[in-house]
Design a protein around this nucleic acid. Structure first.
Length: 281
DNA sequence: CCAGACGTTGTT
DNA sequence: GTCTGG
DNA sequence: CCAGACGTTGTT
DNA sequence: GTCTGG
């Protein structure tokens, strides 16, 4: 903490106020609702196996892991399980997957990796909330000799903590090595609303229930689909800092989303502008 | 035509 | 599969 | 997203 | 630094 204070003293005021804090979107999220709540919220059916997998609440879902998605089938909506990280059907191997955890809304209609899935395989990625990491170290590092890298994880959810669907795409890939069919998915990102813009320049596309209906409808015009890929207003979200324990891949329990005490906000409190700091209270 | 890439994030 | 680069 | 690895040869 | 794994 003493070190943090000494940095603060060295940073020119105008520099501090122009500091833009950065973090990443959609690299980690939560889904801890009961299977029956998922069914009800999305009017979807699920197999016994899916129900079994959803019965474990998740507070730290990471790329490459199995996640629940909502797809639209001839017989209605279903909850299915997909691996997070899209593998296009034409991939020779699975190496692209770790790169394709997000798809940019602005360009997905023209990218070879997403184009076909955008037309034919849209889905909802079911979530209770997601994490962002505020990077508090980059600009200050040019002024200070040895600043320790500081990142503050922030949890974002709908006010009240309700379930929501993120716009996603899914694919089936045939693994030539094993013959297995692998179902994968990706989460679409777009420009942020004002609240999330204080943290980062991208955000996941969260749909309204009405938007979900359009997104999952099989024969929508590409234009009306693209119109859905916009940020929901700031007013529907709330966010707060959480423990860095979420950094550890294997940490996964309800304490991940507990607000941490202001006294634990060392670096973020020291570096954040007053406007950004107000978000913590 | 064939060969080769096919992506996002953040950081600089 | 589909697009870009040569 | 963060954490952790980052390699080959030969031997078992 | 960059890639893979979770």
């Amino acid at each position: 903490m003493m070190i943090v204070i000494s940095w603060y003293a060295k940073i020119p005021r105008n520099f501090l106020t122009s500091l833009s804090l950065r973090a990443c979107m959609c690299g980690r999220y939560t889904m801890f609702a009961k299977p029956s709540d998922v069914q009800q919220r999305f009017r979807a059916t699920m197999s016994a196996e899916v129900e079994r997998k959803l019965s474990t609440p998740r507070y730290n879902i990471a790329p490459t892991q199995e996640v629940p998605i909502i797809t639209s089938r001839e017989y209605g909506r279903t909850v299915e399980i997909a691996r997070w990280g899209l593998i296009p059907s034409w991939s020779r191997d699975a190496s692209l997957a770790y790169k394709l955890i997000n798809a940019r809304a602005e360009t997905l209609h023209e990218k070879p990796s997403f184009k076909d899935a955008f037309r034919k395989r849209r889905c909802l990625v079911v979530a209770n909330g997601f994490y962002e990491w505020k990077n508090l170290s980059d600009h200050t590092s040019t002024l200070l000799s040895h600043p320790p890298p500081k990142k503050q994880p922030i949890y974002v959810q709908l006010k009240g903590g309700g379930l929501f669907g993120m716009a996603g795409l899914w694919e089936e890939w045939n693994n030539p090595a094993t013959g297995d069919v692998v179902t994968t998915c990706t989460i679409i990102t777009t420009q942020p609303n004002e609240l999330i813009a204080t943290v980062h320049h991208r955000m996941a596309v969260v749909l309204t229930p009405e938007g979900e209906d359009v997104w999952l409808h099989q024969h929508e015009s590409l234009e009306s689909l693209r119109n859905l890929l916009k940020p929901l207003p700031s007013e529907v979200f709330e966010m707060y800092p959480v423990s860095t324990r979420v950094n550890a891949i294997n940490a996964d329990d309800a304490s991940m989303i507990e607000p941490i005490a202001l006294s634990e906000l060392a670096a973020s409190a020291a570096c954040a502008s007053s406007k950004q700091r107000s978000l913590f209270s």
